[in-house]
């Protein structure tokens, strides 16, 4: 069974995620630029920024799904090739074809393929683990459903269950709250909190500025470059938000400004 390295050479616990000088470009145009980022272990982090800020790109580059122009990424002090077994990934729901001929339990079991390695097939033990994860997200009755019969929220919970079976130390979730209803959103955040309470690190690409303070304890403000990153109380300020979103003031942002103004 995998376990993350407890200590680095100098005896300190390394940060869960350390990104240095990471740059990714599409056709010569930088999508993210010279990103330096440190996320400590055991926090629930929101990655926030306007459209085109490079939030998904940051995750994909960290997991080597797209080529990096420069920079290094380390998970608990290790490069991705060696950290794979304790990194969990939840892609955007729209990134797969939900008409694919497969069942909910089958999709969840896919999260275990990494542990199985090449060629070995999942068996009874894997089925049990997947069922347990489905119970955690409240989809146990849907195990044998064809995935095209799921609602958007159920699809998202299926993806979440698939990440849970990976039993990772650090999770990357790309817009898990996109187009889900309030009930599902509460359910997802409850599971994320539980993960955090078990010492896992969770990074979430998030859009709703109003819920940041309620849901997360760490925030990274991104707009191609990192504007700020740190605990929500000290980092999620109206000034930093203005820097991140520039002139494009959304009503959410105005709300936030108003709230901080009232509080101050």
């Amino acid at each position: 069974m995998k376990s993350k390295p407890e200590t680095s050479e100098n005896g300190e616990t390394p940060d869960a995620l350390v990104i240095d000088d990471l740059t990714v470009a599409y056709n010569g145009k930088p999508a993210i630029w010279d990103v330096d980022l440190r996320i400590p272990e055991g926090v629930l982090t929101a990655i926030v920024g306007p459209n085109g800020a490079g939030k998904s790109t940051l995750i994909k580059a960290a997991l080597q799904l797209i080529p990096r122009a420069a920079g290094t990424v380390r998970f608990f002090g290790l490069p991705y090739e060696k950290a794979r077994s304790f990194v969990g990934y939840v892609p955007q729901r729209g990134s797969v074809d939900w008409d694919f001929p497969t069942s909910v339990i089958d999709v969840v079991t896919m999260g275990l393929y990494g542990q199985l390695g090449w060629i070995r097939r999942p068996g009874g033990k894997e089925h049990e683990i997947a069922m347990y994860a489905l119970e955690q997200v409240g989809l146990e009755d849907f195990a044998n459903r064809q995935i095209s019969q799921l609602s958007g929220g159920q699809q998202q919970r299926t993806f979440l269950a698939r990440a849970l079976v990976q039993d990772a130390q650090i999770y990357f979730m790309d817009e898990p709250f996109a187009a889900v209803d309030a009930v599902t959103e509460r359910a997802i955040i409850a599971i994320m909190r539980e993960l955090r309470d078990r010492g896992k690190t969770v990074l979430v690409v998030h859009h709703d500025l109003q819920t940041i303070e309620e849901y997360f304890d760490w925030v990274t403000l991104l707009n191609v470059e990192v504007v700020a990153s740190g605990p929500v109380e000290t980092t999620f300020t109206s000034e930093k938000l203005r820097q991140t979103y520039g002139g494009r003031v959304s009503y959410l942002y105005e709300d936030k400004v108003k709230k901080t103004a009232e509080a101050g």
Binding site: L63, L65, R84, Y89, P91, V96, D97, G111, Y113, R162
Partner: peptide, 10 residues
């Protein structure tokens, strides 16, 4: 089904 996850899992 999910090339991104396939790549992430190696």
């Amino acid at each position: 089904f999910d090339p991104a996850l396939a790549a992430a899992l190696g």
